[in-house]
Amino acid sequence: MRQALLIVDVQPSFSPPTWLLRDIDRLLGHMPTVATVECHDEAITPFQAQLGWRPPERERSLIAADRQFVKHGYRPTDEVLNHLIRLVPERVLVCGIQTETCVLAAGFALFDLGLRPTLVTDLTVGSSLDPPGELGIRLWRHHFRHITTLAEVLGTSA
């Protein structure tokens, strides 16, 4: 199956757990990989004005993905989505930070384009509201149905 992996906002300012970095790295080299990095530009997404919080203005991905794209806000940019379309995947695996917000927003964007978003449930963490990401996983299953695990993707039992 032709797959691509979208890695959402695994960046220093969000303090990802080391197991998440290690396990996402296990997928590198198995398929094309794309990472998003959330950076602040108040003129594009008014985080500070609306939430009193903002991501850093400059940031980098902690995963050595094939391509890295900056985004401002919750959803992936058109540049990210167009890149994924050009890869012609049968499905796009999604993992990363904030299952119930940025990861879910990526799912909606991919779904609307017919890219069959599939959440890798054990490669995602939620926000401070829901650290294990259980709410986001339930929402994903409800809206998009397709979920998997790292072991299933790698064809292993662990």
Results as ranks from 00 to 15, higher is better:
residue 5 L to P: 08
residue 5 L to R: 05
residue 7 I to L: 09
residue 8 V to N: 03
residue 9 D to I: 03
residue 11 Q to K: 06
residue 11 Q to M: 07
residue 11 Q to T: 11
residue 11 Q to P: 02
residue 16 P to T: 02
residue 20 L to R: 00
residue 20 L to T: 01
residue 21 L to R: 03
residue 25 D to N: 15
residue 29 G to P: 04
residue 29 G to L: 00
residue 30 H to R: 14
residue 31 M to E: 05
residue 31 M to I: 06
residue 31 M to R: 03
residue 32 P to S: 12
residue 35 A to E: 08
residue 38 E to S: 11
residue 39 C to P: 05
residue 40 H to K: 11
residue 41 D to I: 07
residue 42 E to M: 00
residue 42 E to F: 03
residue 45 T to Y: 13
residue 46 P to A: 08
residue 46 P to N: 04
residue 46 P to S: 00
residue 47 F to P: 00
residue 51 L to C: 03
residue 57 E to L: 09
residue 57 E to R: 15
residue 59 E to H: 05
residue 60 R to T: 12
residue 61 S to Q: 03
residue 61 S to M: 06
residue 62 L to A: 02
residue 63 I to M: 05
residue 64 A to V: 08
residue 64 A to P: 02
residue 65 A to K: 06
residue 65 A to R: 07
residue 66 D to T: 06
residue 67 R to C: 13
residue 72 H to C: 13
residue 75 R to Y: 12
residue 75 R to N: 12
residue 76 P to K: 05
residue 80 V to A: 11
residue 81 L to E: 08
residue 85 I to W: 11
residue 86 R to C: 12
residue 89 P to M: 08
residue 90 E to H: 13
residue 90 E to D: 15
residue 91 R to S: 14
residue 92 V to M: 08
residue 93 L to V: 01
residue 94 V to A: 10
residue 95 C to H: 00
residue 95 C to M: 07
residue 95 C to R: 07
residue 97 I to N: 02
residue 98 Q to M: 14
residue 100 E to C: 07
residue 100 E to S: 11
residue 101 T to Q: 14
residue 102 C to H: 04
residue 103 V to T: 06
residue 103 V to R: 02
residue 103 V to Y: 01
residue 103 V to Q: 03
residue 106 A to K: 02
residue 109 A to C: 08
residue 114 G to S: 10
residue 116 R to Q: 15
residue 116 R to C: 14
residue 119 L to A: 12
residue 119 L to Y: 07
residue 121 T to D: 02
residue 123 L to M: 04
residue 124 T to S: 15
residue 126 G to W: 00
residue 127 S to T: 15
residue 127 S to R: 06
residue 130 D to R: 02
residue 133 G to V: 01
residue 133 G to R: 01
residue 133 G to H: 04
residue 133 G to S: 04
residue 133 G to L: 05
residue 134 E to Q: 13
residue 134 E to C: 05
residue 135 L to V: 14
residue 136 G to R: 07
residue 137 I to P: 01
residue 138 R to H: 13
residue 139 L to Y: 11
residue 141 R to I: 12
residue 144 F to M: 09
residue 144 F to P: 07
residue 145 R to A: 14
residue 145 R to S: 14
residue 148 T to H: 05
residue 148 T to K: 00
residue 149 T to N: 06
residue 149 T to H: 04
residue 151 A to P: 02
residue 153 V to I: 09
residue 155 G to P: 06
